[in-house]
C-alpha cells in the first residue's frame, strides 16, 4: 500500500505541479508588473530625496530587496535540496535547481547596485565590508552549485550531489558571515563607516516594502516557470507530457 502511494506520488505529482504552476505563473507575473510599477513610481518619483545622500539613496529600493532575495533563495534552495535528497521527492529537486539561477541573479544585483551606491556614498565602488564580502561569497556558492549540477550528466546524481553541496553551503553561510564580520571589525583601518539606511520616512519604508514584494513575486513567477521547463525535460518520456503537448497546440 505504502509502495503504491509512493508510486502514485512519483508519477502524478510532476503532472499536477506542471498544471498548477502553469495556472499560477500568469498571476504572479501580473502581480510582479503591478508591484514594480507602483514601487518604481513611488521610489523614483514620489519619495523625496534623502537629506544626506540626495537621490543616490534611491538605489536602496532595489539593493535591499535583491540582497534579501539572494540570501533567502539560497536557504530555500538548500531546504528544497535537502527534502529532495532525504525523501527522494523529485519536485523538490527540480525546485532547488530552478531556484539557483534566479538566486544568483539576485545576489549579483545586490552586489552591482551596492557598488554603484557605494561610489557616491563612500567614494569607492567596492569596500570589503562584511555584508558585501559575504554576498560575494554567496554568489560563488550559487555558481558552484550550478556548475556542479551542470558538470554531472546523470540527472539524479546531479541533483543528489548538488543537494549535498547546497546543504554544506547553507551550514557555512552563517560561519562565513560571522567570520567576515569579525575580520571586518578587526581591520577597521579606513575611515569608511558603513551605516544602515538613514532613519526611514514612512514613504520610503512603504516603497521598500512594495519593492521587496515585487522581487518576491518576480522570483516566484520565474522559478515556477523554470521549474515547469525542468519538469518537462525530466519527464519527457511520461505520458502526461504528451497529453499536455497536444492540449497546448
Amino acid at each position: 500500500m505504502s509502495e503504491r502511494s509512493i508510486q502514485w506520488f512519483r508519477f502524478t505529482a510532476p503532472a499536477n505541479f506542471y498544471d498548477l504552476a502553469g495556472r499560477l505563473v500568469p498571476w504572479f507575473a501580473a502581480l510582479t508588473v503591478a508591484l514594480f510599477a507602483a514601487g518604481l513610481y513611488l521610489g523614483l518619483v514620489v519619495a523625496p530625496p534623502d537629506y544626506q545622500q540626495g537621490d543616490s539613496y534611491r538605489i536602496m529600493y532595489i539593493h535591499v530587496p535583491t540582497a534579501w532575495m539572494g540570501m533567502f533563495l539560497y536557504v530555500l534552495m538548500a531546504i528544497y535540496a535537502a527534502i529532495g535528497l532525504i525523501w527522494r521527492i523529485k519536485m523538490a529537486e527540480i525546485m532547488a535547481k530552478a531556484i539557483a539561477p534566479t538566486g544568483a541573479l539576485m545576489t549579483f544585483f545586490a552586489l552591482w547596485t551596492g557598488a554603484l551606491w557605494g561610489r557616491p556614498t563612500w567614494g569607492v565602488f567596492w569596500v570589503w565590508d562584511a555584508r558585501l564580502t559575504s554576498m560575494l561569497i554567496l554568489l560563488f556558492l550559487y555558481l558552484g552549485y550550478m556548475a556542479l549540477h551542470a558538470a554531472i550528466d546523470d540527472r539524479q546524481r546531479a541533483s543528489n550531489a548538488s543537494a549535498v553541496l547546497a546543504m554544506v553551503g547553507v551550514v557555512n553561510v552563517p560561519i562565513i558571515y560571522f567570520s567576515v564580520q569579525w575580520w571586518n571589525t578587526l581591520h577597521q583601518g579606513a575611515s569608511i563607516t558603513v551605516t544602515d539606511a538613514p532613519t526611514m520616512a514612512t514613504i520610503m519604508f512603504v516603497t521598500l516594502l512594495i519593492m521587496t514584494l515585487a522581487a518576491w513575486m518576480y522570483s516566484i513567477a520565474v522559478v515556477l516557470a523554470r521549474a515547469r521547463i525542468e519538469v518537462l525535460e525530466r519527464e519527457r518520456k511520461a505520458s502526461w507530457v504528451k497529453e499536455r503537448l497536444e492540449a497546448e497546440t
Partner: peptide
C-alpha cells in the same frame, strides 16, 4: 567534500576550486 563531489567528472580539478574555495574563507580569515 569537494573531492568526493567531483569524483569521475571531467575537469574535476577546476570544479573543486569553485566549490571549495568560497568555503575556505573562514579558516583563511
Amino acid at each position: 567534500i569537494g573531492a568526493a563531489l567531483t569524483l569521475g567528472l571531467r575537469g574535476g580539478g577546476v570544479l573543486i576550486a569553485l566549490l571549495i574555495l568560497p568555503l575556505y574563507a573562514p579558516p583563511l580569515i
